[in-house]
Design a protein around this nucleic acid. Structure first.
Lengths: 345, 345
DNA sequence: CTGAAAGCGCTAACAC
DNA sequence: GTGTTAGCGCTTTCAG
């Protein structure tokens, strides 16, 4: 039987309340009593029971993380690195991470997803949500229940919603500028899923850059992907069918860029000789593929840290310094992009 | 205010206990009452409070996952895929995953790691542990507290400990056989950290295969790594310094194999022309590196599933079919291994 | 500064 | 079948 507060109290012939206060560092308890309590707790190897304390305090010291289930999943390198950032920060602050995917489990009525379960059963003090959608029902759901949450990605709604994000638009512009500077004009774009806000912003960057360079926007150079490698593969095939003249492509994330490279290779195109490819995210994998991927690098790990930091502030009802954290992005030039063939230096 | 069991009971003018039983599917409650309770619960959008129920039942429906903190971490592709397997299985069984790394947090007395905190505060019903060590204090710690646990990797102690693992020894033998069949005799080995049981078993496979082929075991061909890419890099450099004649190397995991390839390249060796490299694990990354990695493939995702399945059985006090699950491994031949130069077909 | 007492929301004997 | 009665271990008024 683990030792409880009751045990400590009896031992010291004081009340549970005093023990509780002493352990919580309540200034009202005399430093002498506090010392005795703390020492005994140590000796008896006392550990508070989280469920009990949670029940009383209405706190769990757990933050939930909602990862997409399909087509992307926890196994996506981006999320894994992101989880690492959250985990490392949260753990030092005494929080644990509860992972979940929004998939409804088998034997449950539809609509009753693990997401709603975790929230409704008050397992977590707050949530980190990924992939904000244009109209995201999760927002109202959480607001109704007064559960703090932070988005990975600007959900683009009322500005009182907290989020962390990379500067998508500026990042994509750097990518397109880079391609233009290499002599490319016929630059394709593999976009993300239409319902996600990130898709919208990255597309915006693409259009803005084209406009700046006086390149007309052409629908036949755009294809929809789903942020997965096979999705990128299909999108690239699609573009190549519709517009065989493209000499460069920007993919809205690295996994799709890798898919695009594979598609190009399948079609007998050499990357970067015949087709330059630029990705987005800067996942570790990108440095290992062949050719190594030129990409817009996001500080993924730091995004995770920042999200956790922001959320924990919210949970503890401290006003966060700012509700939005926007990270500047950088262009990492590797081997998958090169000067357009037949272009002077 | 979320609706509680009390509310349901009052509404229906029955007792909390009956509501509790009805919701739990207790056969004693009349099907009519059960139906009414369930319907009202649905209408009022009732959700049980997990801390409260956990407090009473002494259960949390959470399983803990302890991932190494350094030098490997959650960001290691192997663990990420493993987590995916656990997560997908556990979620369908109504369990959540609590991630933790054994690092002690800043402001806490040493020894009081997140690991001990999570266990002692009874946040989890059971644990999945990774990287069993030769003498692993965690075992006694958990046994004392009667917390069920499952190892990823055979800890090689009393056989009542549950674990899931790949067949390390046989796997490595396949790798070495493959290299020998390509004409290699001077085959190096990058081992894992000395305190881990997996290291021991893989080394054993290496020696057994050499013995079978009548190749003498030579210390100068062995180096210690730490299962990370930089560790593999250093180990390879080390081997090349001590034994420039090696024509092939087996690395005890894929990340180290990738490090070894980078080291070889740094020394001006072409892989696989001058040096064949075989890894171990079968992480997705291995298919993307250049040259694509020949490796011993473990069913990583399935290992995760199996570990979760076993643990949940233990938590629910069902006797598991067997306490150990050993998966057969396969050799995946890709581009990083080739016939030794100057050897007849 | 400390203690008594009333819960937090749910479960589990034990009655009837 | 259903209700009553104690808790689970901790926090937090409210007194003193």
């Amino acid at each position: 039987m683990p030792v409880t507060m009751q045990d400590l109290a009896q031992w010291l012939k004081i009340s549970k309340s005093t023990v509780s206060r002493a352990l919580a560092g309540d200034p009202r308890v005399s430093s002498e009593t506090r010392a005795r309590v703390q020492q005994l707790a140590r000796e008896l190897n006392y550990h508070p029971h989280s469920a009990a304390s949670g029940l009383a305090r209405r706190r769990t010291n757990v933050i939930g993380l909602v990862i997409p289930f399909a087509p992307r999943s926890l196994s996506d390198p981006f999320f894994l690195e992101f989880v690492g950032g959250i985990g490392d920060y949260a753990i030092t602050k005494g929080f644990s991470i509860l992972l979940s995917s929004p998939r409804a489990s088998q034997d449950e009525p539809s609509g009753n997803t693990t997401f709603t379960r975790i929230v409704s059963s008050r397992r977590v003090d707050g949530l980190i949500l990924t992939e904000p959608r244009i109209t995201d029902e999760r927002v109202d759901f959480l607001k109704e229940r007064d559960i703090p949450f932070v988005f990975l990605g600007n959900p683009g709604r009322n500005s009182d919603i907290c989020w962390v994000d990379g500067d998508n638009k500026a990042g994509v512009e750097m990518a397109v500028d880079h391609l233009v500077s290499l002599g490319h004009r016929n630059i394709a774009c593999i976009a993300g899923p239409p319902d996600q806000t990130a898709t919208f912003r990255r597309l915006e960057g693409y259009r803005a850059a084209l406009r700046r360079h006086g390149i007309p926007y052409d629908e036949s150079r755009i294809a929809q992907g789903d942020f997965t490698e096979p999705g990128g593969y299909r999108a690239m095939m699609d573009i190549l069918d519709r517009n065989p003249g493209v000499t460069a492509v920007f993919a809205s994330n690295d996994m799709m860029a890798i898919g695009a490279i594979n598609a190009a290779r399948q079609r007998g195109l050499r990357v970067p000789h015949d087709l330059s490819v630029v990705g987005f995210d800067g996942i570790a994998l990108g440095a290992y593929v062949t050719p190594a991927l030129t990409t817009v690098t996001q500080p993924i790990y730091r995004l995770g840290q920042a999200a956790a930091e922001l959320l924990i502030k919210l949970v503890e009802r401290q006003a966060p310094a700012e509700r939005h954290v926007l990270f500047p992005l950088t262009l990492t030039v590797r081997e998958s992009s090169a000067r357009r063939q037949g272009t002077a230096g």
